[in-house]
């Protein structure tokens, strides 16, 4: 046995905290959820709780969640990608500062930040104060899907920026120079070199934004004024006010299946590319 192998077998120990963490906080809760989801209150096996996702109320919430998640992902890409390209051309020091500024708000509790948005967007809020000062008519953004969209885009944007940033910063300048030497214009360089190499980052960013915005419920509760329901709100209600854990778990399982299906495309795509940084 050579030394290298021995060392790597010793290193398996390092995975112990990870394994314990995953078992206690992911595997066991999943087992509990599946148990609740697949039984009724008498303890008999049933698929009804999971199938309940097809009821009109739940479908409506699911569809709305999908729209919010899709819109959020698109907006985040549109905002993040140019931002990262701009950052690539900054000097090392300024690049660090701009990255720091993006991460800075994440040091604060996100519920506080969403509550701040509620203040900004409310009818007599800061936004309308500024708009009316400028002589325009106040807008009624509070408690609308627009408000929820602003909230999720704001909250999840860093999760789109960071993976794209890592992917794009990894692209060697030599590649770009080589392309230019061979006569490629800046458009060709972007579409033939930079963009294809940034796809893994783009995909992991998409996963990290799409899934949480699809399943969130706090943002829609605070910024939607209790009038708009994502599927997360329905699940929350089943657990908290309806005291129906079986139904809540059933819908959670349905949501998990749905998210896995929609991610299937992304992940399959990713396997063909370079292994990505985060996912």
């Amino acid at each position: 046995m050579n030394e290298l192998e021995e060392r790597s077998s010793k290193r398996h120990w390092l995975a112990t905290p990870y394994a314990i963490w995953i078992i206690v906080f992911t595997v066991l809760p999943l087992i509990v959820i599946f148990r609740y989801a697949l039984t009724d209150s008498a303890g008999h096996f049933t698929l009804e709780n999971t199938a309940a996702v097809t009821s009109p109320i739940n479908m409506k919430a699911m569809w709305f969640s999908l729209k919010i998640a899709f819109g959020c992902t698109v907006f985040c890409i549109l905002l993040a990608y140019p931002m990262v390209l701009a950052m690539k051309h900054l000097g090392l020091g300024r690049r660090g500062i701009s990255l720091f500024i993006i991460i800075l708000p994440m040091w604060m509790n996100f519920i506080l930040r969403i509550l701040a948005w509620q203040m900004i967007l409310s009818n007599n809020g800061i936004l309308n104060l500024m708009i009316t000062k400028l002589g325009f008519k106040p807008v009624a953004v509070a408690n609308t899907p627009t408000a929820i969209m602003i909230g999720v885009v704001y909250d999840y944007l860093p999760y789109m920026i960071l993976p794209i940033y890592t992917a794009i910063m990894d692209i060697s300048d030599d590649l770009i120079e080589a392309a230019k030497d061979l006569g490629a214009g800046s458009f060709t360089v972007f579409f033939k070199v930079v963009f294809p190499l940034s796809i893994p980052g783009l995909l992991s960013g998409t996963v990290m934004v799409f899934v949480p915005s699809m399943t969130s419920f706090v943002i829609s509760d605070i910024l939607g004024g209790g009038k708009l329901q994502l599927i997360g709100n329905i699940i929350e209600q089943d657990f908290i006010s309806g005291n129906n854990w079986h139904m809540g778990s059933g819908l959670s399982v349905a949501l998990m299946i749905f998210v896995l299906i929609s991610m299937e495309f992304t992940i399959r795509e990713e396997k063909t590319g370079r292994e990505s940084v985060i996912w």
Partner: peptide, 9 residues
């Protein structure tokens, strides 16, 4: 009434 309601809080 719901369209007239600003929010449920």
């Amino acid at each position: 009434q719901k369209p007239d309601v600003q929010a449920y809080l």
